[in-house]
Computed example of a mutant assay.
Amino acid sequence: MKTILLLILPLLGLMAPPARALDSQAPGDWAVSADGALVLDQRAGLAWSRCVEGMQWNGKTCTGEPRLLDRAEATALASERWKAEGVGWRLPRAAELQRLVDKSLQPPGLNPILFPRAPGQWHWSSTVNTTAPRINQYTYGNIVQGRSGDGAQQGAMLNGWAVNLTSGEARGDAARTSKLPVRLVRAAPVK
């Protein structure tokens, strides 16, 4: 009963959540920072912003509206936040975002205690397509035939990787001009 109260009381705004494990699927792996603004993945050594960009932590929940960005804007935002705060914020890799999806929930998605008001849709990742074949534009045969690249390489330049935070599906064919939410990550603070 005490555990249930500890999980419900912060949602009601009756007490600030202390840093503690919250996720029943991975006991001890997930905790909330003392100020409540970060979710700590203790196994991976990562600190996640509790709210997506555009939303703010008010001590009880995330408020505001998610900021939707294209891939270049998302990358620039992470860099700007790093410079402004002096902390290494970055876009997460696809596998890191997939780890956030709690498949034990019905329906699956982000744990609402850890990530309140989280949009359960596609989010940008920093993962790049490294399997696209390369065409050497300086090879005489490619110049004569008018080839500067093939479809896979050109697609890799136009598309980026995104992860659906409802299902955990990752895809490398998201148009870089798509406007998607961004959840930044950084190294967890050293105790």
Rank of each mutant, 00 (worst) to 15 (best):
M55K: 08
Q25C: 13
W89P: 02
L11G: 12
N58F: 02
G28P: 04
P189A: 12
V39K: 04
R176K: 15
T61W: 00
Q106W: 01
V182H: 06
E65M: 11
L100E: 07
W30T: 01
V163T: 09
A162N: 06
R134I: 08
V185Y: 06
A31V: 07
G168F: 01
K103G: 05
V87A: 13
L97S: 10
L11D: 09
A16L: 00
E169H: 10
L38V: 04
D70E: 02
R134T: 07
R81S: 11
L5W: 11
A187N: 09
R93E: 14
E96Q: 15
P189H: 07
K2D: 13
S79V: 12
G45C: 07
A187F: 06
V182P: 03
K2T: 14
K2G: 06
K179T: 01
N164F: 07
L6M: 10
M55S: 02
A19I: 05
R183L: 11
Q145K: 10
V32S: 06
Q25T: 13
S49Y: 05
A31C: 10
M157T: 08
P189C: 11
A95D: 15
P181D: 12
W89T: 00
Q25M: 09
R134K: 11
L97M: 05
A44G: 05
W124I: 00
P116A: 06
G59M: 07
T61H: 10
S178C: 08
A187Q: 15
L105G: 13
V182C: 04
C51V: 09
A156G: 15
T127C: 00
V190W: 11
G45A: 01
N111A: 02
G160H: 05
L91D: 10
D23S: 10
G86L: 07
R67W: 13
K179Q: 11
A95F: 09
L46W: 09
A132K: 09
I143N: 05
K83C: 00
A162E: 01
N164K: 04
A170E: 10
P107F: 04
R90F: 06
L38E: 13
R186K: 07
C51D: 06
L5I: 03
V190K: 15
R90Y: 00
E85P: 04
S126A: 14
Q25V: 14
L9S: 13
K60D: 00
A72K: 05
G141V: 05
P27G: 06
T75R: 04
L158G: 08
A34F: 02
E96D: 12
P119V: 11
D29P: 01
T166D: 12
G109K: 00
L184R: 06
I113D: 14
L158E: 11
N159H: 00
Q137L: 02
R71Y: 14
D102C: 00
L100Q: 12
V39M: 00
